[in-house]
Computed example of a mutant assay.
Amino acid sequence: MSLAGEERKKIILDRLNGNGKVKTSELVETLQVSSETIRRYLEELERDNRLKRVYGGAIKTGYDQEEPSHLTREVAHADEKKRIARTAANLVQDNDVLLIDDGTTTMHMLPYLRSRKNLCLITISVPALNLLLEYQNQGLWSGDVYFLGGKVQARHFRSVGMHAERMMTDFFIDKSFLAIDGVQLEYGISSYDAEKALLARRFIENAKETIVLSDHSKIGVSTFYKVADLRETEIVVSDVHPPEEWANKLEATGVNWIVAE
C-alpha cells in the first residue's frame, strides 16, 4: 500500500481510538476518497484485528454490550494491567484511606501495597478481600480492611446494590482507584452494569482524589451506563497515551493522564 494509504489508515485508527467507532460516510468526507477505498481500508484493518466492521463503518475490537466474566478479564491484557497497577500503587502513601474497586487491574495493585504503612483499605472485590486476608494471616499486611457487603454478583466476584451504597456513605477516602469498562472523551467513564455504575459514583463522591485505571482496550469505548464525566476524576493511569485529539480537553479539565512504565 502507498504511504498515503498507510497514513489514511492511521487516521482511521486514531479516530477509532478516540470515539470507539467510525462511520464510512464521515471517513469519505474527511479523507477525500471513495467509499470503496474506505471499505478496503476497513477490510485490511479488520484482517489485522485492529477493528471490527459493522454496517456503515467499524467499531473497536472488543467493543461489546456484555461485561466479560472475572475469569475472562483475568487473562485479558494481563501484562498491561500489571504495569498499570504498579504505576497506580506508586500514588499511594503511608496512612492513606483507599477504595480499591473490583477488577483485575486493581487486584494487581495489592502486592505493591504491602510495603505501605498504616493503610486502611475498602473494597467490594471478593478476590481482593481473600488476598488481603491471606496477607494478614502471613504477616504481610498490617492495615485495616473493610468489605462493603451487599448483593453478590457471582460471575464478577463482587458485591453491589443499595446495601453496599449505604455502607459506603459512612466512609470518606483519600484515593479511590476505579476499574472501569469504557473511557471516552465526551461521554466519560462508563460501566456495563447499572448497580456497579451507581456504586462507582458513590466512590467518586466520597473521595478526595479519583484515579481511573484503564488499559488500551477501553479507550474510546462507551458502555451502557455512564459513571461520571472525565472532569470528575483527577488521574487516568493507562498503558498508552491518550488519543491526540483528547490532549486539549484533558488539559482544560485538569485530568492528569499517566502512562504506565
Rank of each mutant, 00 (worst) to 15 (best):
D102Y: 13
T253A: 11
Q138A: 09
T210E: 02
G62Y: 04
K60M: 13
V54Y: 06
R166L: 15
H163C: 12
G62F: 03
A194C: 10
S2I: 08
D94V: 07
M167L: 13
T87F: 00
Q32L: 12
G143Q: 04
G188H: 08
K196I: 11
K82H: 10
L133S: 14
I59T: 06
I180T: 04
F157N: 12
S2M: 10
S176Y: 07
S159R: 08
S115L: 09
I189E: 04
P127E: 09
D239E: 08
S34T: 13
G5Q: 06
E244H: 14
S34N: 03
T233W: 03
E205D: 14
E261Q: 15
G143T: 01
T37Y: 05
T61R: 12
H216Q: 11
A4F: 10
C120V: 15
G5F: 01
Y192Q: 01
V240G: 02
D215E: 12
F203P: 00
A164L: 06
I204H: 05
N206Y: 00
P68Y: 03
L91H: 06
Y146M: 11
I12E: 04
V240D: 00
E186P: 07
L132A: 04
W246R: 05
R201H: 08
L51G: 01
E195T: 07
R202T: 14
T61V: 12
K218I: 05
Y63D: 10
F147P: 00
T87E: 14
A85P: 05
V126I: 15
S115M: 13
G57N: 06
L199A: 03
N256F: 09
K9I: 02
A179K: 05
V236W: 01
N17P: 06
A85C: 10
R202E: 13
D193G: 07
F203Q: 04
L27M: 11
K21L: 13
R39C: 11
K208R: 13
H77K: 10
Y63T: 11
V240Q: 11
Y225A: 02
G56D: 05
E165N: 10
G149N: 11
V237H: 00
M168A: 15
K208S: 08
